[in-house]
Write a protein that binds this DNA or RNA. Structure first.
Lengths: 365, 365
DNA sequence: ATTAGCAGTCGAGCATATCGACTGCTAACA
DNA sequence: TGTTAGCAGTCGATATGCTCGACTGCTAAT
């Protein structure tokens, strides 16, 4: 019986924490015992609530800004709340429709898709939305074609096993005869078929060195192709709605704002941050997801859980999307810690699922 | 003699305005008669200065924030000051070197060049730097090549008369046989050689319609090419250092900041703003440039001179750069009205000149 | 175990006072 | 006639003190 009572108490604590968070998310003001008691479906008096609140405070789930103020959830509190969330809220039907429509109408090319998705995430969340492209360096090289455009311009088209095409213009130092181009392409295709772009980039110079005797000037071309591959494999990052952060009533300290915008400008840094989510979000390593139903792969990083200082006043809600060749990208939103987690997680989840679905269609073509 | 005195008075007024502006730019605080008198190379007492100040105020070149405060230059005051600037300051030798080195090392491709330039403008000014690409639609079409990559992917390479190449992948609805591709390319090359891309885009559908009988599915390809051209001719915009604006001691009103960042996110709007500078900066229409020595083509737009509300607390310093085919792009910086105009104008001028020089080299290849 | 009641705490908001940096004016001066 | 010194007056910025109200935590009663 004592055990039962203990369970009940825990349950009550969780309910109170929930109530505090809901109220705080709604109003933005520290919430007092009265409000909780009044709002509560659980019929408790303010005094009782006060006792529970002080317990929650001992557990470090909530804090006091100062003695005579109400309670505010800590990062740990939010975490506990998010973890105990059984299932994601369903998005409003019209929102789901809007998302699907957007994808149906805008599916011409992959860059547009990504930029559009980040815009969508931003407008629907009213926070900052982002999409990061997959790591292309894990793509497998299938085929290279070299087309001379003029004396000193060569159009290179590269196709990967998964069917992605990448193309770029090369400008070798000196003119290279057509038959040499054909030779180079043949060597590349024979040697690297099935290798990852990463490997291609690293080994190309070595392999082509063998051909040096036959083809002069080949090296500089190889160098250029390598440069291009490393540019192509750089992760592309689409960020939209950064200015939404300025409108947040929390987050007014100008120092924090500056840090945030500095980070948003440093795409490389930002890419690292999001890449980390990739690891945590990857389906196989999805162990901390007890709170997520099957098919709901949303990761939340709350305040201090973020590695970068500029994000420690914010929460990051992210998910992944997958291309048919199993390379994986990340997308999500950045918003205040004081956000409607349930709603935002649903949004990110729905967008990532929809994107997955459409990408599958898209790449089949 | 009276005329002479009048001239002298005017001269003195200008000197005082200069002094006020210098002091205000330096400190950011309204400047009083004492400071001007003390700093002044012109030996005047504070009382006399006060008289002159009130005259300048009547001319609307300076204002009073309130009765017991010093003077602050108005937009008109800055304008008068900038207009009366005889010549641009020479940049520090090391800064010039830095700029040149940057160009020498980073000249692989045009996109990198532009993004690098906007970064440079930002870091050297400590404000926001931008570069907008030329309008490609005025480029003349020279040649189109269509290379099949797989059943349903066609790589298109387009070369313009000035030697720029543009390439993109097409995905027609249905497979198009190789010989049809060759036919389409031939028709395009015959029909449109020498026309502007704008024309090509507009008329392509019509012309290819004639070929409809011979080649089925050609229309969808034409449609796709048209889409791509319009994407390519969209002006590209590189903006860097927006977060620098947050660090400005002026410009703290959160509303203004929000407006600014919203504008920075709306690339289309921003493009329109900068496009306007293109008109004013164009060498042939350079009539208001009495204050600029030959070869110094820098335009300044101060505060309310900007058409867009979000920029009316800022000043825009811009210049143009030209490609060998005579298409023209814009670059410059956005900073507070309280800036060192002389220095910033020199910076923008030097960068645009250097970029011009390097572009000329670049396109020769 | 819960609750009511009460004393105590502390920030937010407001009114008030002081200080100092200016100006504008007047009158004296070169 | 143009310049200057001196002085009264203005007004924001800053500091100080006060009140109000929203809390809590504790104690004692239920």
């Amino acid at each position: 019986m004592r055990a039962l009572q203990h369970d009940e108490q825990e349950h009550r604590k969780r309910k109170v924490l929930q109530s505090v968070i809901h109220e705080y998310v709604r109003t933005g003001k520290p919430v007092g015992s009265q409000v909780v008691a009044a709002s509560g479906r659980l019929g408790l008096s303010p005094a009782t609530v006060r006792n529970i609140l002080s317990e929650l405070e001992k557990d470090e789930l909530i804090t006091h800004p100062h003695t005579s103020a109400g309670r505010v959830p800590t990062d740990k509190g939010y975490r506990s709340y998010v973890d105990s969330m059984i299932e994601l809220q369903r998005l409003a039907v019209q929102e789901e429709q809007k998302i699907r429509r957007e994808y149906e109408s805008r599916m011409k090319e992959i860059e547009g898709l990504m930029s559009q998705t980040s815009k969508m995430l931003s407008t629907l969340s009213h926070y900052t939305g982002f999409v990061m492209s997959p790591k292309f360096e894990k793509n497998k090289f299938a085929h290279l074609e070299l087309v001379p455009l003029s004396d000193r311009r060569i159009l290179a088209a590269m196709v990967t096993e998964s069917g992605l095409t990448k193309h770029f213009v090369l400008r070798p130092q000196e003119e290279i005869p057509r038959e040499h181009l054909r030779g180079i392409a043949r060597i590349m295709n024979q040697t690297f078929s099935g290798e990852t772009l990463e490997t291609v980039q690293l080994q190309m110079t070595d392999h082509l060195e063998q051909a040096r005797e036959q083809y002069r000037h080949v090296m500089s071309l190889a160098q250029e192709i390598g440069d291009e591959i490393s540019r192509l494999t750089a992760k592309e990052l689409y960020v939209e709605g950064t200015s939404n952060i300025l409108a947040l009533p929390d987050f007014t300290k100008s120092e924090d704002i500056q840090d945030f915008f500095k980070l948003m400008e440093e795409k490389e840094m930002l890419a690292k941050v999001f890449e980390r989510e990739l690891l945590d979000n990857a389906p196989e390593s999805f162990s901390n997801g007890a709170h997520l139903k099957a098919g709901k792969r949303v990761n939340v990083r709350i305040g201090s859980e973020n590695s970068v200082k500029a994000l420690q006043n914010l929460s990051l809600v992210s998910s992944t999307y997958q291309l048919p060749d199993r390379t994986v990208g990340v997308l999500g939103i950045l918003g205040p810690k004081r956000m409607e987690y349930s709603k935002m997680m649903s949004l990110v989840n729905y967008v990532s699922q929809t994107m997955n679905k459409f990408l599958k269609e898209f790449e089949k073509i």
